[in-house]
Amino acid sequence: MKILIVEDEKALSDSMVEYLGEEGHHCEAIYNYFDAIDKIGMYQYDCIVVDINLPDGNGLDLIRFIKKKSILVGIIIISALNSLENRIEGLEIGADNYLTKPFHLAELNAHLKSINRRISYGGSNQIIMNEIKLIPDEHIAFVNDKEITLTKKEYELLLFFISNKNKVITKSGLAEYLWGDYMDLADSYDFIYTHIKNLRRKLLKEGCEDYIKTIYGLGYKFESN
């Protein structure tokens, strides 16, 4: 996937480039509005990650520009502004997602993948990882072609793990992905523990390999080779 990252904070931009690069994406980092306009005009991208507050312009204008030119590209807004109006405005003008800083790289990655699926395959594709098969449209999962009954959260959890396979996923990253911001995260780790326990049990029961590893103190890792 070709990704353009428009973020003026170089350190943050570097992090995204590195994390997404490891996932096999080709990332380009741009630090201001006008360079971004140039790039978008010249090259084709699958997805654009854009910050709203840029030194020489507004990320929302960039999105308006993209929509005016009818460029087919996935758009994720990352912004320190966390108000409903900003969110709604961003989504209304055509962004696919809105992440509030600080966000988890794993979450960004998961969203990028889901946008990519939607754009590339119209969402009708399947996600296959060894013996596991997910059908995102219908929120169902198969192990060795046998359907397993997952709750909504368990399904989301599995999808998140597969999107970030071989990465250490933190508990707080999981909690925020599953329940969103503003959730007081007390006990959330217990909740996550419960979810993962159930998910693992359901997967193992159908003869799935035990991919979920606990990383001491930090979180989990979905390991597959």
Partner: peptide, 30 residues
């Protein structure tokens, strides 16, 4: 928010280094 985003992202990158000892993981986790 922005510096926090940088800290968090760097830390997330750090924890992807496979060859860390448990003690190091603990420090990063905290």
């Amino acid at each position: 928010q922005t510096p926090l985003a940088i800290i968090n992202s760097k830390m997330e990158l750090l924890m992807q280094w496979g060859d860390m000892k448990e003690k190091q993981y603990k420090i990063v986790a905290d």
